[in-house]
């Protein structure tokens, strides 16, 4: 089942072209890793999937992005972002309590019932493996949590609105190895219910969790293949060079 169908996508910020003629499909319930050196267009690609690039004043694009067969540009942007959630590179809690952070999304989508909200908060925190650590202090500020806990809180907050796709933008770049392992663990378990796109600077992470891996270089999609094949027998010499650490 195809979740995202991307056809001949070009993106510019002002006069600089960030993505060049990208065409690919993202399958349902897969973890797609996106790797590539800095400024290769990975994050632009990710932010295009739920139209976050549009917040940039000089953004221009051509080509098509379809979610379940419908062009994202025709969808209502709020409901698109509800279906396609983001976990950002840095842990970015909102300046609210732990509980209110997780409840924020569903409240904005109109949920009023306190009992239902509590259920969603508990379930989301459990899905993000944070519940046991915070269940006694849900009313305290989210900024009191450690970096790794904050990032799992952000995952819980994204899960709470029940998205279909979760975009991870280098979610472990600021985390220690143990927190990274916990986040990766969470991602592997989430795959059952969600489609995951993971942008990462860590090639080994892509190899550990990705079903398929896409390699971007200077705004172009160089190669997209099953992760195991990509890491053992890449078909493009540039992919091989990047994976083996010759550049990037």
């Amino acid at each position: 089942m195809v979740k995202f169908n991307i056809n001949d996508l070009n993106i510019w910020f002002g006069s600089a072209q960030a993505l060049k003629g990208v065409s690919m499909k993202i399958m349902r319930n897969e973890i797609l890793s996106v790797i590539g050196p800095a400024n290769s267009g990975k994050t632009t690609f990710l932010r295009m999937l739920n139209r976050m690039n549009e917040l940039h004043p000089n953004f221009k694009m051509s080509g098509e992005v379809e979610l379940d067969g419908r062009r994202t540009s025709e969808l209502d942007v709020e409901s698109l972002r509800k279906r396609v959630g983001t976990v950002f590179a840095l842990p970015l809690p909102l300046p609210l309590s732990i509980f209110d952070n997780v409840a924020y999304g569903v409240r904005m989508h109109g949920l009023k019932s306190k009992a239902a909200t509590s259920d969603i908060v508990e379930r989301s925190l459990q899905e993000a493996y944070l519940w046991d650590e915070v269940k006694d202090r849900l009313g305290t500020s989210a900024f009191k949590l450690s970096g790794g806990q904050q990032q799992r809180l952000c995952i819980a907050r994204t899960l709470a609105v029940e998205p279909e796709v979760i975009l991870f933008d280098e979610p472990c770049s600021g985390l220690d190895p143990i927190s990274t392992a916990k986040v990766e663990d969470a991602m592997l378990k989430l795959k059952v219910n969600y489609t995951i796109v993971l942008v990462t600077n860590n090639v080994k992470q892509a190899a550990r969790v990705g079903d398929r891996t896409a390699f971007f270089l200077s705004g172009e999609l160089i190669e997209l293949d099953i992760t195991d094949k990509m890491f053992t027998a890449p078909s493009d010499h540039r992919t091989e060079g990047y994976i083996s650490g010759k550049f990037g």
């Binding site: 976050m52 972002r81 950002f88 970015l92 909102l94 300046p95 924020y104 904005m108």
Partner: peptide, 10 residues
Amino acid sequence: FREVSLSLGA
């Protein structure tokens, strides 16, 4: 903060 809020569909 604004990006996070918008990304949640607000």
